[in-house]
C-alpha cells in the first residue's frame, strides 16, 4: 500500500514539475518574442501542454474521484478552446491593422483581403 502511494506521489510530482516548466517557458516566450502572432505561438502550444501536465498531476494525486474527473474535463476543454481563441485573436489583430514584426518575410493574408477591399 505504501509503495503504491509513493509511486503515485512521484508520478504526480513529476507531472507537476513538467507542467510548471512548460508554463514558465510559455510565459518567457510571451515576454521575449517580438509580435502578437509569435507570442500566440508560445501561449497556445506551450500553455496547453503545461496546463495538461498539471491536470494529469492532479489525476495521479487524487485518483478517479470527482476532482480527478473534473481535472480531465478541464484539460479537454482547454485543448478544444485554446486553438480557436488563438485564431480569433490573430484574425482580429490582423484586421485591426496590427502589423507583423520587421523580421517577417511574407504576408499573403494581408494581400488577400486588401484586394477584396479595393474591389468594394
Amino acid at each position: 500500500m505504501t509503495d503504491y502511494e509513493m509511486i503515485r506521489n512521484i508520478l504526480s510530482f513529476s507531472f507537476f514539475a513538467g507542467g510548471m516548466i512548460f508554463l514558465f517557458l510559455g510565459m518567457l516566450g510571451l515576454l521575449r518574442l517580438p509580435d502578437v502572432y509569435n507570442r500566440l505561438h508560445a501561449t497556445t502550444k506551450i500553455g496547453i501542454l503545461g496546463a495538461f501536465g498539471v491536470m494529469l498531476g492532479i489525476v495521479m494525486k487524487v485518483g478517479f474521484n470527482s476532482m480527478g474527473i473534473k481535472a480531465i474535463t478541464v484539460g479537454m476543454f482547454l485543448m478544444l478552446t485554446a486553438p480557436m481563441a488563438a485564431h480569433m485573436m490573430s484574425r482580429a489583430a490582423h484586421r485591426h491593422g496590427v502589423g507583423l514584426c520587421k523580421e517577417s518575410i511574407v504576408d499573403e493574408y494581408g494581400q488577400s483581403y486588401y484586394k477584396d477591399q479595393e474591389k468594394e
Binding site: R32, Y37, A42, C101, V106
Partner: peptide, 26 residues
Amino acid sequence: EILKASIAVAKIIIQPTINIKPGIIS
C-alpha cells in the same frame, strides 16, 4: 504533435538571441 510543437517552440524561446523568420502563408 503537441509534444513536438511545445519542445520546438521552447527551443526557440531559450536561445540567447531570437533568430526567426516569421510570416503568413496561404
